[in-house]
Design a protein around this nucleic acid. Structure first.
Length: 459
DNA sequence: TTTCCTTTGAAGCGA
DNA sequence: TCGCTTCAAAGGAAA
Protein backbone atom coordinates (compact mmCIF):
# COMPACT_ATOMS: atom_id res chain seq x y z
CA UNK A 1 0.00 0.00 0.00
CA UNK A 2 1.22 3.38 -0.82
CA UNK A 3 2.85 5.14 1.94
CA UNK A 4 5.54 7.55 2.68
CA UNK A 5 8.30 7.08 5.04
CA UNK A 6 9.74 9.80 7.09
CA UNK A 7 11.96 10.84 4.27
CA UNK A 8 9.04 11.17 2.01
CA UNK A 9 10.04 8.20 0.01
CA UNK A 10 7.70 5.51 -0.90
CA UNK A 11 7.65 2.66 1.42
CA UNK A 12 5.06 0.27 0.39
CA UNK A 13 5.61 -2.32 2.93
CA UNK A 14 3.68 -2.39 6.07
CA UNK A 15 0.11 -1.58 6.35
CA UNK A 16 0.61 0.31 9.51
CA UNK A 17 2.83 2.70 7.72
CA UNK A 18 0.61 3.05 4.81
CA UNK A 19 -1.65 5.87 4.15
CA UNK A 20 -3.66 5.90 7.22
CA UNK A 21 -7.18 6.96 6.92
CA UNK A 22 -7.59 6.19 10.50
CA UNK A 23 -6.62 9.60 11.64
CA UNK A 24 -7.18 11.15 8.38
CA UNK A 25 -5.76 14.14 9.85
CA UNK A 26 -7.28 16.14 7.15
CA UNK A 27 -9.04 18.66 9.25
CA UNK A 28 -10.80 20.16 6.38
CA UNK A 29 -12.31 16.90 5.46
CA UNK A 30 -13.15 16.14 8.99
CA UNK A 31 -14.96 19.37 9.32
CA UNK A 32 -16.77 18.83 6.11
CA UNK A 33 -17.75 15.34 7.02
CA UNK A 34 -18.58 16.08 10.54
CA UNK A 35 -20.86 18.69 9.21
CA UNK A 36 -22.64 15.98 7.43
CA UNK A 37 -22.45 13.50 10.15
CA UNK A 38 -23.71 15.60 12.96
CA UNK A 39 -26.28 17.55 11.14
CA UNK A 40 -27.49 14.82 8.94
CA UNK A 41 -27.39 12.23 11.57
CA UNK A 42 -29.48 14.49 13.65
CA UNK A 43 -31.79 14.88 10.74
CA UNK A 44 -31.86 11.20 10.29
CA UNK A 45 -32.60 10.56 13.89
CA UNK A 46 -35.08 13.33 13.94
CA UNK A 47 -36.83 11.99 10.95
CA UNK A 48 -36.82 8.61 12.48
CA UNK A 49 -38.22 9.90 15.65
CA UNK A 50 -40.98 11.37 13.65
CA UNK A 51 -41.32 8.18 11.81
CA UNK A 52 -41.23 6.11 14.91
CA UNK A 53 -43.76 8.28 16.51
CA UNK A 54 -45.85 7.77 13.52
CA UNK A 55 -45.27 4.12 13.14
CA UNK A 56 -45.46 3.13 16.72
CA UNK A 57 -48.87 4.51 16.80
CA UNK A 58 -51.46 3.62 14.31
CA UNK A 59 -48.91 5.04 11.90
CA UNK A 60 -49.88 8.36 10.59
CA UNK A 61 -53.52 8.33 10.12
CA UNK A 62 -54.49 9.26 6.72
CA UNK A 63 -56.58 11.88 8.30
CA UNK A 64 -53.36 13.65 9.12
CA UNK A 65 -51.85 14.25 5.77
CA UNK A 66 -49.64 16.91 7.19
CA UNK A 67 -48.00 14.51 9.54
CA UNK A 68 -47.51 12.06 6.76
CA UNK A 69 -46.04 14.71 4.60
CA UNK A 70 -43.60 15.77 7.29
CA UNK A 71 -42.47 12.23 7.79
CA UNK A 72 -41.90 11.72 4.14
CA UNK A 73 -40.19 15.04 3.86
CA UNK A 74 -37.83 14.13 6.59
CA UNK A 75 -36.94 10.97 4.79
CA UNK A 76 -36.46 12.75 1.57
CA UNK A 77 -34.28 15.32 3.20
CA UNK A 78 -32.16 12.62 4.67
CA UNK A 79 -31.98 10.77 1.42
CA UNK A 80 -30.97 13.87 -0.40
CA UNK A 81 -28.36 14.72 2.11
CA UNK A 82 -27.06 11.28 2.25
CA UNK A 83 -26.96 11.07 -1.46
CA UNK A 84 -25.13 14.34 -1.62
CA UNK A 85 -22.71 13.18 0.92
CA UNK A 86 -22.08 9.95 -0.80
CA UNK A 87 -21.81 11.54 -4.15
CA UNK A 88 -19.43 14.01 -2.72
CA UNK A 89 -17.33 11.20 -1.53
CA UNK A 90 -17.46 9.42 -4.78
CA UNK A 91 -17.31 12.27 -7.19
CA UNK A 92 -13.62 12.33 -7.32
CA UNK A 93 -13.36 8.70 -7.87
CA UNK A 94 -12.08 7.52 -11.11
CA UNK A 95 -15.08 6.58 -13.09
CA UNK A 96 -13.03 4.65 -15.48
CA UNK A 97 -12.06 2.41 -12.73
CA UNK A 98 -15.41 0.80 -12.67
CA UNK A 99 -17.38 1.80 -15.63
CA UNK A 100 -15.45 -0.33 -17.96
CA UNK A 101 -15.16 -3.25 -15.73
CA UNK A 102 -18.39 -4.74 -16.66
CA UNK A 103 -18.98 -5.64 -13.08
CA UNK A 104 -21.93 -4.23 -11.46
CA UNK A 105 -20.46 -5.23 -8.21
CA UNK A 106 -18.79 -2.08 -7.19
CA UNK A 107 -20.83 -0.47 -4.55
CA UNK A 108 -21.54 2.67 -6.39
CA UNK A 109 -22.47 1.02 -9.58
CA UNK A 110 -24.18 -2.07 -8.49
CA UNK A 111 -27.47 -1.47 -10.05
CA UNK A 112 -27.65 -4.70 -11.87
CA UNK A 113 -28.10 -6.48 -8.67
CA UNK A 114 -30.52 -9.34 -8.99
CA UNK A 115 -32.28 -7.81 -6.10
CA UNK A 116 -33.06 -4.93 -8.33
CA UNK A 117 -33.79 -6.65 -11.50
CA UNK A 118 -36.61 -8.65 -10.17
CA UNK A 119 -37.43 -7.27 -6.87
CA UNK A 120 -36.68 -9.46 -3.99
CA UNK A 121 -37.29 -12.72 -5.65
CA UNK A 122 -33.72 -13.67 -6.01
CA UNK A 123 -32.99 -12.89 -2.48
CA UNK A 124 -35.51 -15.35 -1.39
CA UNK A 125 -35.21 -17.99 -3.96
CA UNK A 126 -31.51 -18.35 -4.36
CA UNK A 127 -28.69 -18.77 -2.03
CA UNK A 128 -27.93 -15.27 -1.18
CA UNK A 129 -25.26 -14.90 1.42
CA UNK A 130 -26.31 -12.94 4.40
CA UNK A 131 -27.99 -9.91 3.12
CA UNK A 132 -25.91 -9.06 0.20
CA UNK A 133 -25.90 -10.45 -3.23
CA UNK A 134 -23.12 -12.85 -3.67
CA UNK A 135 -21.53 -10.87 -6.38
CA UNK A 136 -20.52 -8.13 -4.19
CA UNK A 137 -23.16 -5.57 -3.86
CA UNK A 138 -22.09 -3.32 -1.17
CA UNK A 139 -24.55 -1.32 0.79
CA UNK A 140 -22.58 1.82 0.73
CA UNK A 141 -23.88 2.87 -2.42
CA UNK A 142 -26.35 2.74 -5.09
CA UNK A 143 -28.31 5.74 -4.34
CA UNK A 144 -30.94 5.87 -6.88
CA UNK A 145 -33.73 8.20 -6.23
CA UNK A 146 -35.86 6.23 -8.50
CA UNK A 147 -35.53 3.33 -6.24
CA UNK A 148 -37.13 5.24 -3.50
CA UNK A 149 -40.14 6.01 -5.53
CA UNK A 150 -41.58 2.58 -5.67
CA UNK A 151 -41.55 1.30 -2.24
CA UNK A 152 -44.17 -1.29 -2.70
CA UNK A 153 -41.58 -3.87 -3.57
CA UNK A 154 -40.82 -4.42 -0.02
CA UNK A 155 -44.09 -6.12 0.29
CA UNK A 156 -42.50 -9.11 -1.28
CA UNK A 157 -41.50 -10.13 2.13
CA UNK A 158 -43.98 -11.88 4.23
CA UNK A 159 -45.49 -9.67 6.78
CA UNK A 160 -44.26 -11.68 9.68
CA UNK A 161 -40.69 -11.64 8.66
CA UNK A 162 -39.74 -8.49 10.34
CA UNK A 163 -41.45 -9.34 13.48
CA UNK A 164 -39.58 -12.53 13.72
CA UNK A 165 -36.38 -10.78 13.04
CA UNK A 166 -37.23 -8.08 15.40
CA UNK A 167 -37.40 -5.60 12.65
CA UNK A 168 -39.97 -3.01 12.98
CA UNK A 169 -41.26 -1.82 9.71
CA UNK A 170 -43.74 0.92 9.62
CA UNK A 171 -46.12 0.24 6.87
CA UNK A 172 -46.14 3.82 5.91
CA UNK A 173 -42.47 4.00 5.15
CA UNK A 174 -41.83 1.63 2.41
CA UNK A 175 -39.10 3.96 1.40
CA UNK A 176 -37.17 3.00 4.42
CA UNK A 177 -37.95 -0.60 4.65
CA UNK A 178 -35.78 -1.72 7.46
CA UNK A 179 -34.66 -0.51 10.77
CA UNK A 180 -31.64 -1.13 12.85
CA UNK A 181 -31.27 -1.53 16.49
CA UNK A 182 -30.48 1.66 18.12
CA UNK A 183 -27.08 1.90 19.59
CA UNK A 184 -27.21 1.78 23.28
CA UNK A 185 -27.52 5.28 24.41
CA UNK A 186 -27.34 6.41 20.89
CA UNK A 187 -30.65 8.00 20.36
CA UNK A 188 -32.29 8.09 23.64
CA UNK A 189 -35.29 9.94 22.54
CA UNK A 190 -36.50 7.17 20.40
CA UNK A 191 -38.74 4.87 22.23
CA UNK A 192 -37.51 1.36 22.80
CA UNK A 193 -40.54 0.06 21.13
CA UNK A 194 -39.24 1.44 17.94
CA UNK A 195 -35.70 0.49 18.51
CA UNK A 196 -34.69 0.41 14.90
CA UNK A 197 -33.56 2.92 12.47
CA UNK A 198 -32.24 2.68 9.02
CA UNK A 199 -28.60 2.52 8.39
CA UNK A 200 -27.79 5.04 5.73
CA UNK A 201 -25.60 2.51 4.08
CA UNK A 202 -28.65 0.46 3.75
CA UNK A 203 -30.70 2.92 1.84
CA UNK A 204 -29.93 1.32 -1.38
CA UNK A 205 -32.26 0.06 -4.00
CA UNK A 206 -31.47 -3.45 -3.09
CA UNK A 207 -32.31 -2.84 0.45
CA UNK A 208 -35.27 -0.94 -0.56
CA UNK A 209 -36.68 -3.63 -2.67
CA UNK A 210 -35.86 -6.50 -0.46
CA UNK A 211 -36.35 -5.13 2.95
CA UNK A 212 -33.27 -6.94 4.03
CA UNK A 213 -31.33 -5.44 6.84
CA UNK A 214 -28.02 -3.88 6.22
CA UNK A 215 -25.26 -6.44 6.27
CA UNK A 216 -23.81 -4.71 9.20
CA UNK A 217 -26.69 -6.01 11.17
CA UNK A 218 -27.82 -9.53 11.00
CA UNK A 219 -29.21 -11.88 13.51
CA UNK A 220 -26.27 -13.77 14.75
CA UNK A 221 -26.21 -17.38 15.59
CA UNK A 222 -22.51 -17.71 15.86
CA UNK A 223 -22.01 -19.17 12.49
CA UNK A 224 -21.58 -17.16 9.41
CA UNK A 225 -23.20 -19.73 7.27
CA UNK A 226 -26.16 -19.89 9.49
CA UNK A 227 -26.30 -16.19 9.63
CA UNK A 228 -27.17 -15.96 6.05
CA UNK A 229 -30.23 -14.43 4.74
CA UNK A 230 -31.51 -17.66 3.46
CA UNK A 231 -31.24 -19.08 6.89
CA UNK A 232 -33.02 -16.17 8.32
CA UNK A 233 -35.83 -16.85 5.96
CA UNK A 234 -36.31 -20.29 7.38
CA UNK A 235 -39.14 -19.33 9.60
CA UNK A 236 -41.20 -19.05 6.47
CA UNK A 237 -40.35 -22.45 5.22
CA UNK A 238 -40.67 -23.82 8.69
CA UNK A 239 -43.44 -21.81 10.16
CA UNK A 240 -44.09 -24.38 12.83
CA UNK A 241 -40.78 -23.96 14.48
CA UNK A 242 -40.57 -21.26 17.02
CA UNK A 243 -37.26 -19.56 16.67
CA UNK A 244 -36.00 -17.45 19.42
CA UNK A 245 -35.42 -13.94 18.25
CA UNK A 246 -31.73 -13.56 17.83
CA UNK A 247 -29.94 -10.51 18.80
CA UNK A 248 -28.98 -8.62 15.73
CA UNK A 249 -25.29 -8.40 15.25
CA UNK A 250 -23.68 -5.27 14.05
CA UNK A 251 -20.99 -6.37 11.73
CA UNK A 252 -17.69 -4.73 11.37
CA UNK A 253 -17.43 -2.21 8.62
CA UNK A 254 -15.52 -3.50 5.69
CA UNK A 255 -11.98 -2.41 5.28
CA UNK A 256 -10.49 -1.30 2.04
CA UNK A 257 -9.38 -4.70 0.98
CA UNK A 258 -12.71 -6.23 1.76
CA UNK A 259 -14.40 -3.65 -0.36
CA UNK A 260 -11.96 -4.39 -3.10
CA UNK A 261 -12.64 -8.07 -2.80
CA UNK A 262 -16.32 -7.62 -3.00
CA UNK A 263 -15.95 -5.71 -6.15
CA UNK A 264 -13.39 -7.84 -7.85
CA UNK A 265 -14.39 -11.26 -6.77
CA UNK A 266 -16.85 -11.72 -9.56
CA UNK A 267 -14.28 -10.60 -12.04
CA UNK A 268 -11.71 -13.04 -10.83
CA UNK A 269 -14.22 -15.82 -10.77
CA UNK A 270 -15.17 -15.06 -14.30
CA UNK A 271 -11.63 -14.82 -15.50
CA UNK A 272 -10.20 -17.72 -13.67
CA UNK A 273 -13.14 -20.02 -13.40
CA UNK A 274 -12.23 -20.50 -9.83
CA UNK A 275 -14.76 -20.98 -7.17
CA UNK A 276 -12.64 -21.55 -4.18
CA UNK A 277 -12.76 -18.41 -2.21
CA UNK A 278 -9.43 -19.12 -0.66
CA UNK A 279 -7.78 -19.30 -4.03
CA UNK A 280 -9.65 -16.32 -5.27
CA UNK A 281 -8.61 -14.35 -2.27
CA UNK A 282 -5.02 -15.18 -2.92
CA UNK A 283 -5.33 -13.73 -6.35
CA UNK A 284 -7.17 -10.76 -5.05
CA UNK A 285 -4.50 -10.18 -2.50
CA UNK A 286 -1.90 -10.02 -5.22
CA UNK A 287 -3.96 -7.79 -7.35
CA UNK A 288 -4.47 -5.59 -4.41
CA UNK A 289 -0.77 -5.15 -4.10
CA UNK A 290 -0.55 -4.50 -7.78
CA UNK A 291 -3.00 -1.68 -7.58
CA UNK A 292 -1.69 1.77 -7.92
CA UNK A 293 -1.66 4.07 -5.00
CA UNK A 294 -4.53 6.02 -6.39
CA UNK A 295 -6.59 2.97 -6.96
CA UNK A 296 -6.01 1.70 -3.50
CA UNK A 297 -6.65 5.04 -1.96
CA UNK A 298 -10.14 4.98 -3.36
CA UNK A 299 -10.89 1.91 -1.43
CA UNK A 300 -9.26 3.28 1.66
CA UNK A 301 -11.37 6.33 1.33
CA UNK A 302 -14.46 4.29 0.86
CA UNK A 303 -13.61 2.17 3.84
CA UNK A 304 -12.98 5.24 5.88
CA UNK A 305 -16.39 6.58 5.07
CA UNK A 306 -17.87 3.30 6.01
CA UNK A 307 -16.17 3.37 9.32
CA UNK A 308 -17.27 6.88 9.96
CA UNK A 309 -20.84 6.11 9.21
CA UNK A 310 -20.62 3.03 11.27
CA UNK A 311 -19.23 4.92 14.18
CA UNK A 312 -21.89 7.53 13.93
CA UNK A 313 -24.68 5.09 13.75
CA UNK A 314 -23.38 2.77 16.39
CA UNK A 315 -21.37 4.91 18.73
CA UNK A 316 -21.38 2.32 21.43
CA UNK A 317 -20.41 -0.49 19.18
CA UNK A 318 -17.07 -2.12 19.45
CA UNK A 319 -15.44 -4.71 17.31
CA UNK A 320 -15.01 -6.53 20.52
CA UNK A 321 -18.74 -7.04 20.61
CA UNK A 322 -18.43 -9.63 17.92
CA UNK A 323 -15.54 -11.44 19.43
CA UNK A 324 -16.21 -15.03 20.12
CA UNK A 325 -19.09 -15.24 17.73
CA UNK A 326 -17.06 -17.15 15.31
CA UNK A 327 -15.53 -20.20 16.75
CA UNK A 328 -12.05 -20.06 15.54
CA UNK A 329 -9.26 -22.10 16.78
CA UNK A 330 -6.66 -19.57 16.12
CA UNK A 331 -5.87 -19.37 19.72
CA UNK A 332 -5.16 -23.04 19.74
CA UNK A 333 -3.46 -22.94 16.44
CA UNK A 334 -1.34 -19.95 17.18
CA UNK A 335 1.01 -21.45 19.62
CA UNK A 336 3.07 -18.42 20.08
CA UNK A 337 6.63 -19.51 20.17
CA UNK A 338 7.47 -16.47 22.15
CA UNK A 339 6.36 -18.44 25.10
CA UNK A 340 9.19 -20.78 24.42
CA UNK A 341 12.02 -19.69 26.64
CA UNK A 342 14.50 -21.12 24.24
CA UNK A 343 13.20 -19.27 21.24
CA UNK A 344 15.50 -16.86 19.50
CA UNK A 345 15.15 -13.20 20.09
CA UNK A 346 13.44 -10.92 17.72
CA UNK A 347 15.33 -8.17 16.03
CA UNK A 348 14.10 -5.61 18.45
CA UNK A 349 15.36 -7.54 21.38
CA UNK A 350 18.46 -8.72 19.62
CA UNK A 351 19.71 -5.48 18.16
CA UNK A 352 17.86 -2.89 20.12
CA UNK A 353 16.29 0.27 18.97
CA UNK A 354 19.59 1.88 18.21
CA UNK A 355 20.47 -0.67 15.59
CA UNK A 356 17.36 -0.81 13.57
CA UNK A 357 19.42 -1.04 10.43
CA UNK A 358 20.18 -4.56 11.47
CA UNK A 359 16.57 -5.42 11.82
CA UNK A 360 14.83 -7.49 9.27
CA UNK A 361 12.33 -5.77 7.07
CA UNK A 362 9.22 -6.87 8.85
CA UNK A 363 10.67 -5.78 12.15
CA UNK A 364 11.38 -2.37 10.72
CA UNK A 365 7.81 -2.29 9.66
CA UNK A 366 6.66 -3.33 13.05
CA UNK A 367 5.66 -6.67 11.74
CA UNK A 368 6.56 -10.08 12.85
CA UNK A 369 10.22 -10.82 12.83
CA UNK A 370 11.18 -13.23 10.13
CA UNK A 371 14.58 -13.90 11.57
CA UNK A 372 12.84 -14.83 14.67
CA UNK A 373 10.74 -17.22 12.66
CA UNK A 374 13.73 -18.58 10.85
CA UNK A 375 15.34 -19.18 14.14
CA UNK A 376 12.44 -21.34 14.97
CA UNK A 377 13.18 -23.39 11.93
CA UNK A 378 9.76 -22.72 10.66
CA UNK A 379 10.63 -20.79 7.64
CA UNK A 380 14.06 -20.77 6.21
CA UNK A 381 13.07 -18.91 3.18
CA UNK A 382 15.18 -16.35 1.53
CA UNK A 383 14.96 -12.82 2.50
CA UNK A 384 14.67 -10.02 0.09
CA UNK A 385 17.01 -7.13 -0.01
CA UNK A 386 15.06 -5.36 2.60
CA UNK A 387 14.84 -8.37 4.76
CA UNK A 388 11.40 -9.36 3.75
CA UNK A 389 10.63 -12.96 3.26
CA UNK A 390 10.17 -13.78 -0.35
CA UNK A 391 8.63 -17.14 -0.40
CA UNK A 392 8.46 -18.04 3.16
CA UNK A 393 6.20 -20.93 3.67
CA UNK A 394 3.91 -19.88 6.36
CA UNK A 395 3.37 -21.61 9.51
CA UNK A 396 0.76 -24.22 8.99
CA UNK A 397 -0.94 -22.59 11.83
CA UNK A 398 -1.52 -19.32 10.25
CA UNK A 399 0.16 -18.10 7.18
CA UNK A 400 -0.97 -14.59 7.79
CA UNK A 401 0.96 -14.10 10.90
CA UNK A 402 4.08 -15.81 9.92
CA UNK A 403 3.95 -14.13 6.56
CA UNK A 404 2.79 -10.65 7.18
CA UNK A 405 1.51 -8.67 4.33
CA UNK A 406 4.46 -6.41 4.47
CA UNK A 407 6.72 -9.33 3.86
CA UNK A 408 5.19 -10.08 0.54
CA UNK A 409 7.17 -9.14 -2.49
CA UNK A 410 4.73 -6.50 -3.38
CA UNK A 411 4.77 -5.02 -6.79
CA UNK A 412 6.28 -1.87 -5.47
CA UNK A 413 8.88 -3.33 -3.26
CA UNK A 414 10.90 -6.07 -4.73
CA UNK A 415 9.69 -7.36 -7.98
CA UNK A 416 7.02 -5.23 -9.44
CA UNK A 417 6.93 -6.96 -12.74
CA UNK A 418 6.61 -10.38 -11.31
CA UNK A 419 4.13 -9.34 -8.81
CA UNK A 420 2.03 -7.44 -11.23
CA UNK A 421 2.18 -10.27 -13.63
CA UNK A 422 1.09 -12.71 -11.05
CA UNK A 423 -1.48 -10.34 -9.85
CA UNK A 424 -2.93 -10.01 -13.26
CA UNK A 425 -2.85 -13.68 -13.87
CA UNK A 426 -5.27 -16.11 -12.45
CA UNK A 427 -2.97 -17.42 -9.86
CA UNK A 428 -1.02 -16.31 -6.96
CA UNK A 429 2.61 -15.91 -7.81
CA UNK A 430 4.49 -19.13 -7.91
CA UNK A 431 7.07 -17.65 -5.67
CA UNK A 432 4.80 -17.30 -2.78
CA UNK A 433 1.32 -18.46 -2.52
CA UNK A 434 1.60 -21.57 -4.56
CA UNK A 435 4.80 -22.59 -2.97
CA UNK A 436 3.60 -21.63 0.39
CA UNK A 437 0.48 -23.60 0.10
CA UNK A 438 2.32 -26.58 -1.17
CA UNK A 439 4.77 -26.52 1.64
CA UNK A 440 2.36 -26.07 4.40
CA UNK A 441 1.88 -29.71 5.08
CA UNK A 442 1.01 -32.88 3.22
CA UNK A 443 -2.63 -33.20 2.83
CA UNK A 444 -3.11 -29.73 4.04
CA UNK A 445 -5.91 -27.89 2.47
CA UNK A 446 -3.55 -25.33 1.21
CA UNK A 447 -2.09 -27.89 -1.10
CA UNK A 448 -5.44 -28.39 -2.56
CA UNK A 449 -5.79 -24.73 -3.06
CA UNK A 450 -2.44 -24.61 -4.76
CA UNK A 451 -3.46 -27.33 -7.08
CA UNK A 452 -6.65 -25.57 -7.76
CA UNK A 453 -4.88 -22.38 -8.49
CA UNK A 454 -2.23 -24.07 -10.55
CA UNK A 455 -4.83 -25.89 -12.52
CA UNK A 456 -6.49 -22.66 -13.19
CA UNK A 457 -3.20 -21.16 -14.18
CA UNK A 458 -2.47 -23.97 -16.57
CA UNK A 459 -5.84 -23.73 -18.10
C1' DT B 1 -23.76 -28.95 10.33
C1' DT B 2 -19.72 -26.73 11.30
C1' DT B 3 -15.19 -25.33 10.48
C1' DC B 4 -11.43 -24.32 7.52
C1' DC B 5 -9.06 -21.89 4.00
C1' DT B 6 -7.19 -17.36 2.21
C1' DT B 7 -6.50 -12.50 1.74
C1' DT B 8 -5.74 -7.34 4.03
C1' DG B 9 -7.05 -3.98 7.21
C1' DA B 10 -9.04 -2.31 11.51
C1' DA B 11 -9.53 -2.62 16.20
C1' DG B 12 -9.10 -4.41 20.83
C1' DC B 13 -6.36 -6.04 24.51
C1' DG B 14 -2.54 -7.57 27.40
C1' DA B 15 2.18 -6.95 28.49
C1' DT C 1 4.21 1.08 22.17
C1' DC C 2 4.29 -3.45 20.58
C1' DG C 3 2.62 -7.89 19.43
C1' DC C 4 -0.99 -10.75 19.03
C1' DT C 5 -5.81 -11.97 18.16
C1' DT C 6 -10.22 -11.56 16.12
C1' DC C 7 -13.37 -10.29 12.70
C1' DA C 8 -15.00 -8.56 8.34
C1' DA C 9 -16.56 -11.43 2.92
C1' DA C 10 -16.78 -15.40 0.10
C1' DG C 11 -18.04 -20.21 -1.04
C1' DG C 12 -16.22 -24.74 -1.85
C1' DA C 13 -14.04 -28.46 0.66
C1' DA C 14 -13.37 -31.18 4.48
C1' DA C 15 -14.33 -32.91 9.00
Amino acid sequence: MPQMNSAGEDDLGASDEMISFKDEGDQEEKIRESAFTERDLADLKSSLVNESEVSSHPRVPESHPEAMRRTQDAQLVYQDKLTDHMEDGVKHQDEGMYKGSGYPSYPFLMLSDPYLSNGSVSALSSKVPVVQPSHGVHPLIPYNNESFSHGSHSTHLPADLNQKQGVHRPAQTADIPTFYPLPSGGVGQISPSVGWFPHPLMLSPSMHTTGIPHPAIIPHSGNKDIDCYERNMKPHSEPKREREPKKPTIKKPLNAFMLYMKEMRAKVIAECTLKESAAINQILGRRWHALSREEQSKYYELARKERQLHMQLYPGWSARDNYGKRKRRTREKHQDSSSDPGSPKKCRARFGLNQQTDWCGPCRRKKKCIRYLQGEGRCGSPVSSDGSAIDSPPSPLNSRHSMPSSAYPTAKLSSPADSVQSAQSCSPSSSSSTVRSSLISPGYKGAFLSQTVNASENS
